[in-house]
Amino acid sequence: MAKRLLGMGDPDFSFAMPSGQDTVIMPEEVFFIEDSDAELDGRSLGDPVRLETNPTIGGVPLPTRPTFVLGEAHMETTDPEEYRRTREQAQQAVASSSTATIESGTE
């Protein structure tokens, strides 16, 4: 769909990051950039262009036309220690959020 209907080339929404993490991008809103002004050290960087082939970052193909995407990205955490630490932080954030809601509801 991205290639035929949106003219975005062959972007990949499911790929492995350079870190090795499996990643899935789920776009919710897509905005095509038709016009923009950008300067670097006082010099114009030119107008947005549509490319013939997909540019890449770390081997991940990006859209061929200037695009701004809002949505979600999900990555697999492959390091067991990072997974434990992240899960613990998320649980603490939920617990403190729940406590703040309960405390503010009783005032």
Rank of each mutant, 00 (worst) to 15 (best):
L70C: 07
F15E: 00
N54S: 04
E52S: 11
V60Q: 03
V30R: 00
T56A: 10
S14A: 11
E82P: 00
L5A: 10
S36A: 14
S36N: 09
Y83P: 01
D41K: 12
A38V: 05
T56S: 09
L45M: 14
E34M: 08
H74R: 14
A95D: 11
M8V: 06
V49A: 12
E28T: 12
T77H: 05
S97V: 03
M75K: 12
A100G: 03
A93G: 05
E107A: 11
M26V: 14
S98I: 10
A93L: 13
I57E: 11
L62E: 10
F32M: 05
P18A: 04
T106A: 07
A16F: 10
M26N: 11
E76Y: 01
M75P: 00
V24W: 08
V94M: 11
E52Q: 11
E76M: 07
T99R: 15
L51D: 03
T23M: 09
L5S: 10
T56F: 03
G59S: 04
F31H: 12
A100D: 08
M17F: 06
P80V: 00
T86W: 04
D22V: 07
Q91F: 06
A93S: 12
F68M: 14
S14I: 02
V69Q: 00
S36F: 10
A95H: 05
L70H: 07
D22A: 14
G105I: 05
A100C: 03
E76W: 02
A38N: 14
S19V: 07
T78E: 02
R84I: 05
Q91D: 13
D41Q: 12
Q21V: 03
E81L: 15
S96E: 15
M17E: 15
E76H: 06
T64Y: 00
G9T: 01
P48T: 01
